[in-house]
Write a protein that binds this DNA or RNA. Structure first.
Length: 498
RNA sequence: CGGGGCGUAGCGCAGUCUGGUAGCGCGCACGGUUCGGGACCGUGAGGUCGGAGGUUCGAAUCCUCUCGCCCCGACCA
């Protein structure tokens, strides 16, 4: 109903409609003909590529290498690690046949019943099992360790309800899978990656996160410990933005991956796995954007600076285009992603609105008046403010330096804003009544918990709030469980979550 | 799988109750006037009304079957 209007739905009125519209209107992605799957459009994919590049560099810098493992997982592999199998069984797509044939009863194609697979192939919901079946052959001695592998891939989890970017049946991600000679080293790896994820979220996405460990009930199927980064979205719900798992020797046992240690004894290898997905796109949108559209952190924006000419005649446009050539060159030389939009099929006002919708951090507007005055209009997407700045169009280097520092300032500023939002929406809660009341309003709740799965479950049933994590950094002040009144060593993080 | 809703032009919708030449807005094409925050006027193109069957002189509209999508719940990065 509001779709036709130029304005987006308001966050305050209908948050999920606002989210869906922003994804569509900013041209990030669309729903596909296949249920639960999305088409990521070029503009959206460009953001994902920037995320990939930054993360990939961080993985490489810490000694990891990329590789690729198959899409198909034999059923017998998935079965091997019992908890893992149980955890993923109910959301697997299964390949049972390898051939189609012409429909003998009419048009089209049907599955050829003679082409039934001896053993079903599961479309990977994650790759631990295929990878550890390969590692078995890669690992003989402690000298073969550690193995530090990452892969960029798609996975499929047959979700009952999907939401674009946040929970799709197929999604893109990276999954790291490492093997180590000692428990200490594997645990260290788990933490190292968690740190990388937190740095990426904060420094690139400008999204503050809480690092923590999951409770047993929220743990990855097959893990000893699951660490996570949790972010707070603008509607007060939590979003798990990345996970890093310490897998112990569970997969090594299941796949019989043993190595000879320095003492010439056989030992099972220690494992980790970790991943972030296209869900981060959803996080990015919900962390910063406003009722005018997307707000992108400069470091991840496919277009960092857009230049919009303001003119009447083709002659004016030609004059502007010629005058700003050195500027465009200088911006590019400075390493900035710049777009000069001289297209003639939309007017400047339309372009202003469009680039705001798409979240371009800085917009430069230049018209004939500016040419005369030696000025240019600089507009900030995050604050929606604009100012006229002087510019020497012949040698614009100092102006460009100013734009560069403005982009840094924007990156910092949207992080600060998100951090302030999280601080203002994190509540210390000590009574059950207060808990029930606050959870309705949203936000992070720091409360004491007695450590039992029963209490955790009861709280979830009564309030839909889950323990997002037990924060790694917190003041270790003992208290009483907000639900049961029993002893508690420290507060944990509760929220309703995506 | 349970409970709701919807399939009509590229997109968003009206028309269905009460059967009678398939419409509106946006977008698109062309021409003109405009142009410092989503311009306006004129002309035009574009539809197996999700699919199949039935009732009828006549079906987008009534009946039967069927396919698909969306929202709410149970599952989850």
């Amino acid at each position: 109903m509001v779709y036709m209007s130029k304005a987006l739905p308001k966050r305050s009125e209908n948050y999920s409609e606002w989210y869906n519209e922003i994804v569509k209107r900013a041209d990030l992605a669309e729903n596909s003909a296949v249920r639960g799957c999305m088409v990521i459009k070029p503009y959206g994919f460009a953001i994902w590529e920037k995320m990939q590049r930054a993360l990939d560099d961080m993985f490489k810098a810490t000694g990891h290498q990329n590789a690729y493992f198959p899409l198909f997982v034999p059923r017998s592999f998935l079965e091997k690690e019992e908890e893992h199998a149980e955890g993923f069984a109910k959301e697997c797509a299964v390949v049972t046949h390898y051939r189609l044939k012409a429909n003998p009863d009419g048009k089209g194609l049907v599955v050829d019943p003679n082409a039934k697979l001896e053993e079903e192939l599961i479309i990977r919901p994650t790759s631990e099992t295929v990878i550890w079946s390969a590692y078995k052959n890669w690992i003989q001695s402690w000298r073969d360790l550690p193995i530090l592998i990452n892969q960029w891939a798609n996975v499929v989890r047959w979700e009952m309800r999907t939401r674009i970017f946040l929970r799709t049946a197929e999604f893109l991600w990276q999954e790291g899978h490492t093997a180590h000679a000692t428990e200490e080293e594997a645990v260290e790896e788990t933490h190292k990656i968690l740190g990388i994820y937190a740095d990426f979220a904060e420094q690139w996405m400008a999204m503050p996160v809480v690092q923590g460990v999951k409770t047993a009930s929220e743990r990855f199927a097959g893990a000893e410990d699951t660490f996570c980064i949790e972010a707070l979205m603008q509607d007060g719900k939590a979003l798990q933005a990345g996970t890093s798992h310490f897998l112990g020797q569970n997969f090594a046992r299941s796949f019989d991956v043993q190595f000879v240690n320095k003492e010439n004894q056989l030992e099972y290898a220690w494992a980790t796995s970790w991943g972030v997905s296209t869900r981060l796109m959803g996080a990015l949108i919900m962390a910063h954007s406003d009722d005018n559209g997307l707000v992108l952190p400069p470091k991840l924006a496919p277009i960092q600076v857009v230049i919009v000419p303001i003119y009447r005649s083709p002659e004016d446009l030609a004059k502007i285009s010629e005058s700003i050539e050195p500027l465009i060159g200088a911006l590019k030389t400075a390493g900035l992603a710049v777009k000069y939009d001289d297209s003639d099929n939309q007017r400047s006002g339309w372009k202003f609105a469009e680039y705001e919708l798409r979240g371009v951090p800085v917009r430069l507007g230049i018209g004939m008046r500016d040419l005369e005055n030696g000025t240019i209009e600089v507009a900030r997407r995050d604050t929606l403010t604009k100012e006229s700045r002087p510019i020497d169009l012949v040698s614009p280097d100092s102006f460009v330096a100013g734009i560069k520092s403005l982009l840094d300032e924007i990156q910092e500023s949207i992080y600060d804003r998100a951090l302030r939002f999280r601080e203002e929406n994190t509540f210390l809660v000590d009574t059950w009544d207060e808990f029930k009341e606050q959870i309705e309003k949203g936000g992070f709740i720091m409360a004491h918990w007695d450590g039992t799965a029963e209490t955790e479950e009861k709280i979830k049933e009564e309030t839909k709030a889950t323990i997002r994590c037990i924060p790694l950094v917190s003041d270790e002040m003992a208290g009483k469980c907000v639900y049961s009144g029993k002893e508690s060593a420290k507060r944990v993080l509760f929220a309703r979550a995506y």
